[in-house]
């Protein structure tokens, strides 16, 4: 399960996930995401390359977002219009973490002004 972390000049941390966030992969993702979240203040979690997520993966997203928000930071999700977005919306996660299908909107949502 690849995870790519990009520190943008705007101070935003972009975490790019790809492949499947299933039970086989979720523990490694969870550990990596929490390590990044511990240092980040503004984060976009880019899920456009993710093929599968269910509630085990959603747990990681919520844990990560709670850590960031606990530091009064900002976090947003970026997805393609696919089953991953459907899972996130169906579970109500998008009511807790803003969800975008546009990179620019996701970055703007978390950028400090």
């Amino acid at each position: 399960m690849p995870i790519d972390v990009q520190e943008l000049a705007t101070g935003v941390t972009r975490v790019v996930l790809s492949g499947r966030i299933d039970i086989s992969a979720v523990q490694a993702i969870d550990t990596a995401m929490m390590a990044v979240a511990a240092k980040a203040q503004c984060m976009v979690i880019d899920l456009t390359g993710v093929e599968f997520i269910a509630s085990m993966g959603l747990r990681s997203l919520v844990k990560c977002a709670k850590m960031i928000r606990g530091k009064r930071g900002h976090v947003a999700l970026l997805t393609a219009p696919n089953v991953v977005a459907d899972v996130i919306r169906s579970s109500g996660i998008d009511d807790l973490i803003p969800l975008f299908d546009s990179d620019a909107e996701a970055l703007a949502a978390v950028s400090l002004v």
């Binding site: 269910a54 509630s55 959603l58 747990r59 919520v62 844990k63 977002a65 709670k66 928000r69 606990g70 899972v87 169906s90 579970s91 109500g92 996660i93 009511d95 807790l96 973490i97």
Partner: peptide
């Protein structure tokens, strides 16, 4: 019950919702 905010939200507990949705 769906949490009103991230601070109130539990980490898990969304599996049944997904089973019934899909």
């Amino acid at each position: 019950r769906l949490a009103g905010s991230l601070a109130e939200a539990t980490v898990g507990g969304r599996g049944l919702t997904l089973i019934r949705r899909f």
